[in-house]
């Protein structure tokens, strides 16, 4: 009886694993929007399949044994306890499987580390608890702003109903053009933070005093949301990242608007002095 339960459980787990592979569901990584994200997504599915097969293999044998080789069925114990051949086989096969897994991973790692010749460069600085952005190079150079959580405190304290993008909305989004290689330079002002946008497949820690970089090329226009992914104190859960990807011409308009707005701001600043 009990073993049936176990077998059912195994079945349920296998099913759950299988369902987790359904594309675009909330059981899996978010819909990939860049090459790296796509490669990662596929790699994950591929590795999951391998693991599932091994899992079913190992526990198939084990649960067969659990079902059949039990004392209550009058089964008498054998007395073997050693076999070098078998040991070698089950050492070598996992090694081969690992090589198969590592191969695509290596290619992607090399690609994801290559931040050379970007179309534009943006510097992101982590603060407790918001992000600062400076467009350093490429179209939009000179733009710079802070980006803070815009979800009202009342929603957090359950005094207002929560919106769809609860905790994932900011006052100023990072805007980038579609199809361009964007290099993100990261640093932090106080403690560690991490800049993470799942759909674009990047996550990189921001380290005070040091510089790290990473890159992405967005496939399609849209709004992609992420969060700070390194514990940074009290409001670590409240410093989201929102990237808006625009068509090239829209982006140009956005840049113009930003630059003139900041020109106005600076001149006001000067007059006030």
């Amino acid at each position: 009886m009990r073993s049936k339960l176990v077998a059912t459980l195994a079945g349920v787990l296998a099913l759950a694993m299988y369902s987790s592979m359904a594309v675009g569901s909330k059981y899996n990584l978010p819909e990939p929007q860049s090459i790296i994200a796509r490669e990662t997504y596929d790699m994950h599915i591929w590795v999951m399949w391998i693991c599932l097969v091994i899992f079913i293999g190992v526990f198939g044998v084990m649960f067969y044994s659990v079902l059949k080789h039990r004392k209550s069925l009058g089964y008498k114990a054998a007395n073997f306890h050693h076999s070098t051949t078998v040991e070698i086989i089950w050492t070598v096969i996992p090694c081969i499987i690992l090589v198969v897994m590592a191969f695509p991973a290596t290619k992607t790692v090399i690609a994801m580390k290559d931040t050379s010749s970007p179309d534009m460069t943006i510097k992101a600085t982590g603060y407790q608890w918001m992000w600062g952005y400076d467009y350093l190079q490429g179209e939009g150079e000179g733009i710079s702003f802070f980006s803070k959580l815009s979800t009202p405190r009342a929603q957090v304290q359950n005094k207002e109903p929560k919106g769809e993008n609860y905790l994932l909305e900011v006052d100023n989004r990072v805007v980038v053009p579609v199809g361009k290689k964007v290099r993100i330079i990261l640093t932090a002002n106080d403690v560690l933070h991490a800049w993470w946008v799942p759909a674009l497949g990047i996550k990189q820690d921001a380290i005070p005093g040091f510089i790290r970089d990473t890159w992405f090329t967005a496939d399609a226009p849209g709004i992609y949301r992420g969060q700070c992914a390194e514990l940074c104190g009290k409001d670590h859960g409240f410093m989201p990242i929102v990237v808006e990807v625009m068509e090239a011409d829209e982006y140009t308009k956005w840049v113009a608007a930003q630059l003139s707005a900041s020109a106005v701001k600076t001149s006001m600043h000067v007059e006030n002095k």
């Binding site: 460069t121 510097k123 350093l136 330079i185 005093g209 510089i211």
Partner: peptide, 13 residues
């Protein structure tokens, strides 16, 4: 690394 960083784009420190 810190010494190299003075040559990185946008480095303010």
């Amino acid at each position: 690394w810190l010494a190299e960083e003075s040559s990185v784009l946008g480095n303010s420190f």
